[in-house]
Every structure is written in C-alpha cells, then in structure tokens.
Design a protein around this nucleic acid. Structure first.
Lengths: 200, 200
DNA sequence: CAGCGGAAATGACATTCGTCACCTCGAATC
DNA sequence: GATTCGAGGTGACGAATGTCATTTCCGCTG
C-alpha cells in the first residue's frame, strides 16, 4: 500500500483527486492539506510515503515545501503536480530533489501510474518539460528579482525604492539591467518574461 | 437521471470530477469537453440537461459558451465553475442567463447538491460572490479595454497603435482615460484593476 | 597593504508616458 | 441646412522611465 499525502489549495481538485486515488487498490490517501503549512503538520503526524503537492498555494509554496521535506524527512518522496510548465519551477524542483514533476494536464490514470513508478524508485518528469529543463537559467540577481516583482504590480521607481530602502535611481539601474538581460523593451515585458520562466 | 456535460480544460480535474460525479446515483456525465468548441459539438450530439463549464479555456470561453447556449439551446441550463471570484465575470454570466455560478473552492458534495438544486429549477450563486455582484460595473469603453489589454502585455503606445490602427496619441488618450476611470497611477495598475474585476 | 569586485548611489541625457486643451470629420438629429 | 455628438487625432508640457558613465563603500583575496 502506497501512503499518499495530497497538498492542493483548490478544494474541488483536492477532494476529487483524493477520492479517486483512494479508490485504487494499492493507493491510500492518508491526509490532505490545503496549503504548505498544513502539509508540514500532516507530514509530521502521518509520515506518508509520497507527498503530492501543488506549487502555487497560500502560505508556503510547494517548492519551499519540497525543500523542507528534503531537510527534515529525506525518506519521503516528493511529487510536484502543477499547472505551470515553467522551466524555472522544474529546475528548482529538481534542485530540491523531487522525484516527480507532473502537469495537471495529465489524466488520472497516468498520474496514478506515475505515482506507482515513483514509489518503486523511478523518477518521472512530464515529457513536455523534460526537454525545456536545460534551456536557459535565471540570469537575474536577487535584487533584480525583487525590483521586477514590485514593478510588475504597477509600483513606480520611487515606490519600489521606498519598499526596498533604495534610492529611486538605484531602482532604475536594477530595472534597466533586468530589462537588458531579458531582452525586453520595458519593465512590463521584462516582468512577464521572468514570470513565465518561473524566475520570480 | 440528470444528464451532465462537463467543459474544463484541465484534464486532471475534468477526469477526476467527471468520474466522481458519475458515481452519484442520479447524475450521469454524458460527455466531456476540453474547450468551448468541443463543448458546442458535444451539446449538439448529446443534448444534456446541464452544462457545467469553466470560464478560462482555450478557444471560446465559458462565458461565450453560455451566451451561445442561451441562443441555440435555451432549455439547457448552464452552470459556471471557475477559480475566479471576479464580479465582472459573474455579472456577464448572469446576463447570459446562467443558473449557477460556483467556485472551484467548493468541495465535491456541495457541488453535486448544487447541481441537483439547479436541475430542480433553483438558481445557485456562490455566497462569497452573491454580495459583490452588484458592486461596481465596468466603466470602460471597448476601445479602452482593447488598449488596456495590449498595454498589459508590455506593448508601447506606438505598438498598440499599430495593432489597432490608431495614432499613438490616440492610444495615449484612451489609456489616460482608463487610468483615470479606474483611479490608477499608471497603465500597469489600471490593467491589474480591470483584470481583477473581470472586465478584460 | 594593494587591488579587485560587487552593491548602492549619483548625475546627465534621451525617450516614453500621462494629462489636457483643442481640432477634424462624418453620421445622426433637429 | 445647421447642430450635436462621438470617434479619432494633434500638439504641448511636465513627470516618469530607460541608458550610461562614474563614484563610493565595503569585504575579500593575493
């Protein structure tokens, strides 16, 4: 019996997927979590074999969760299950030692099979992503990321500066560098590119 | 027996939810569609009692689908099932005569109940949204919406002008009006506000 | 200690944006 | 035929943004 813990913030999917996987003879959903923090607690109490987690959740993300699991419970295998085919996400996930990275495009049966294979020791990466994995890596510095995130929310240079305790000229510089590195025309395009790559 | 058609682009949710609803004694999923166009065809062939559809899908959206159903098959009841609690979406859905508007936050059982009630003639709106429904309505003109959409993708005034066959000064004017109407500081903020309201 | 490199800042400059008042032209209205 | 109105356009002006060269201030490292 493979003991699963599901972490997913969309209640409908969490419930439906949980029930369905539970119907499989060799799978058992021992707990469900609606966010990263609940997942940590559930891990401590239930010690599942496999953690299946979404990435974008309130509280701590699935990637943070995966990193934590590797530290705290290295025997638990982590499977990422997300909507986003973003190279940066996959890279970070692999760095965190996850055993599987699957998209929500996958139908249920293939997903269940993948979970079995992962439990048996295999590593399963969605084929659509396996290729893009070693494409481009994040060229941004931490400061550039911070500035870009805020710029993407519509803040002006001055406002960004205030938030990060920087002069607005400095903000301009970081933004200019980020725009250059990403070959964008302006801050908005730069923000989109970085976000779509999973670098923010 | 209530005959359902599900339209949802996320294969995992489509599959899991479909299987689960099908297990209910009085519900039958007669067809599944991964986008709006497939849904139209499936409606023609299967004539379901209820159409349960997502909003944001490739091809035509769930809202367009709902509008089409009211024209072509007014006897079919439409239920919107979406992640987004955007007032503009709800308003447009109600204008299209949908009988239900539910969030993917809803667990499966309440969803099944809601479908039964809708089939029985009731109208079910997610309580979280029922309130916000009559808040604010879209103050934007069609031109302003177009311009804002493109601005949100990082295009400059000149580029937007080229796309829409307008002079860049005119683009500036539309954008300026939109920013004013939405009480935003700049185009990015205006874009975000409009998007979050479901006006784009 | 000298030297190097990264983080933060400054100043100058061109370009783009945001605002506003005003112009044009064609269709609908009177 | 004159008037109104709305979509689109112009021009001007200040503010914000983007680019670059240069500077200061560390903390390292040889």
């Amino acid at each position: 019996m493979i003991r699963l813990l599901l972490a997913e913030d969309q209640a409908l999917l969490l419930g439906a997927l949980g029930s369905l996987l539970d119907l499989e003879d060799d799978l058992e959903v021992v707990a469900r979590a609606a966010n990263g923090d609940q997942a940590r607690q559930a891990i401590e109490t239930h010690r599942p074999d496999l953690l299946v987690t979404d990435i974008e959740m309130p509280g701590s993300t699935g990637l943070e969760l995966a990193e934590w699991v590797r530290e705290a419970h290295p025997e638990i295998r982590v499977v990422i299950l997300t909507t986003f085919a973003r190279p940066g996400y996959l890279r970070r996930a692999l760095d965190a030692g996850v055993r599987g990275y699957l998209l929500k495009e996958t139908p249920v049966e293939p997903l269940a099979d993948a979970l079995r294979r992962i439990h048996a020791g295999e590593r399963v990466i969605d084929p659509e992503l396996a290729l893009t994995a070693f494409d481009s890596k994040d060229p941004l510095t931490e400061r550039e990321r911070q500035v870009l995130r805020l710029a993407g929310e519509g803040l002006s240079n001055a406002e960004i500066g205030k938030r990060l305790h920087l002069a607005d000229g400095t903000v301009r510089n970081y933004l200019s560098e980020a725009i250059g590195k990403l070959a964008a025309e302006n801050r908005i395009e730069a923000y989109r590119i970085a976000r779509d790559q999973g670098w923010l």
